[in-house]
Computed example of a mutant assay.
Amino acid sequence: MNWKEFLEDRTRLFWFVHSAGWFGFALVHYLGSLLHDLRDIFVVIIFLNAYAGWLFTVPLRYIYRRVWNFSPIKIALVVIISSYVTGVLWQIVKNINYWEIYKHGYKPDFLLMYTQSSLWSFYIVLSWSCLYFGTKYYQMLQVEKQNVLKANTVAHQAQLKMLRYQLNPHFLFNTLNAISTLILVKENKTANSMVTKLSEFLRYSLDKDPMKKVPLESEIQALELYLAIEKVRFEDRLTVTFNIDEACQKALVPSMILQPLAENAIKYAVAVQEQGGEIAITVSQFANDLLIEVADNGPGAEIVNGNLHRESGVGLVNTKERLQALYNKKYSLVVSHNKPSGVKVNIRMPFELT
């Protein structure tokens, strides 16, 4: 049993705090009795009184649980009345203990004397009641806080899943459209090759949990599957070069983070040029960051404040939102002009190993 489980068990926590509180009460009174040079028998009275207080305050727990949902005024009245009655009963027992044991059977002249000093006992019980309600409210706040955190986590996971699954229909539409075109022009062999590669890519994509990060080497494999599909379309017009540091192969990255960037480069750099184009993927480590660059040699684009004006799909927007959801402010995505021509996308994220 660890402390977290212990504190979350309300019943066990109540009995522990309840017993520890009354033991502390007895200990304080015992230390105080040493200053008055009282007989040793007084120690027995102290612990009998503490035990009586322990017993009398137990029913208060069940009373307060029944009135928990009452209005604040009604709760206050119940607390005051219950604390006063309990304090009086406890004080009667304390007086009996003192007179019967310490005073050797002393009998007061009036029965009301058994209730003398009840006000002090009332304060003690009232303090117990306030501590009980304070602890209960604190536990409620902690539960509510955990519920809010769980709700935020669920919403966060739903957002990530939505962003991740946006990629499949987007990519699928483009690929199926290309296959349809190949069939219309009777390039059946090429179309069949694309269907085969598409099935492999989708199998890989759907097998990956969108909530989990994957090693970079797995992400590169997925990208190579995607590029193999595009190679069927563009043949020699598409050239891809990889420059991956060996130390980065095991680094964790969001699944399918490279594919939309490569798709953008193909759409705006390769497809628009008769001679095709080249895409260069570079990954390196700098201090505690992982640096990813996807660059092309296309005609370029208008870039303002690190954003593409031509962007109208889900590629870069999706990537930014996923990075924001996963890393908060611990990332950057910058779009800039490539030299001598084209566009490059640079991503910085925390370097994490599997």
Rank of each mutant, 00 (worst) to 15 (best):
L38E: 14
V78K: 06
D236E: 15
V88G: 08
Q91N: 09
I220H: 00
V294F: 09
Q139W: 09
Q91M: 10
H29D: 12
I41D: 10
G53F: 00
G105I: 01
V58G: 07
K213Y: 00
G32D: 13
H18G: 06
T196V: 14
W54C: 04
F16W: 06
N69E: 11
Q166I: 01
Y98Q: 13
N346V: 14
G342A: 03
A52M: 08
W99E: 08
N346E: 15
L308E: 07
E293H: 05
S255C: 11
S121W: 09
L7V: 05
Y123Q: 13
L48W: 04
P210Y: 14
G87I: 03
V43F: 06
S82N: 09
G53H: 00
N188F: 13
E278R: 15
H104V: 09
L126F: 12
N307V: 10
S193R: 14
L261C: 00
G306I: 00
N264G: 00
A271G: 02
P215Q: 15
E100M: 14
N174M: 01
L119N: 08
G300A: 11
I347F: 08
E235A: 14
M256W: 01
I75C: 03
Y102W: 13
L291V: 15
R233P: 02
E230D: 06
L258E: 03
D40W: 12
T354E: 15
V79D: 04
N168P: 02
V272S: 10
W120N: 13
R10M: 03
E144V: 02
I266G: 05
F42A: 05
I266P: 04
G313N: 15
L89H: 04
F234H: 12
H18C: 02
V343Q: 13
F122A: 06
W15F: 10
I281Y: 04
G24K: 06
N174W: 02
I292C: 05
M140D: 07
T239G: 00
V283P: 08
V58W: 09
R203K: 14
S83R: 02
M1S: 09
I45R: 10
Y30T: 13
Y102Q: 07
V214H: 09
L34F: 11
W68E: 15
N95I: 00
L182D: 07
P108T: 09
L202W: 01
L141W: 06
L225M: 14
R10D: 09
L126G: 02
I41Y: 01
A52I: 02
E5Q: 02
Y51L: 15
Y84M: 15
T57F: 07
L163Q: 01
Q259I: 11
K344C: 13
E235I: 10
I73H: 10
Y331T: 01
V43E: 06
M162A: 15
E278A: 12
Y62E: 09
V143G: 07
Y114W: 13
Y114A: 02
Y106M: 11
I92V: 10
L160G: 02
T115Y: 05
M140I: 04
L223A: 12
I63W: 03
V44T: 10
N307L: 13
S218C: 07
Q259H: 03
A76L: 15
V240T: 07
G277T: 06
I281T: 08
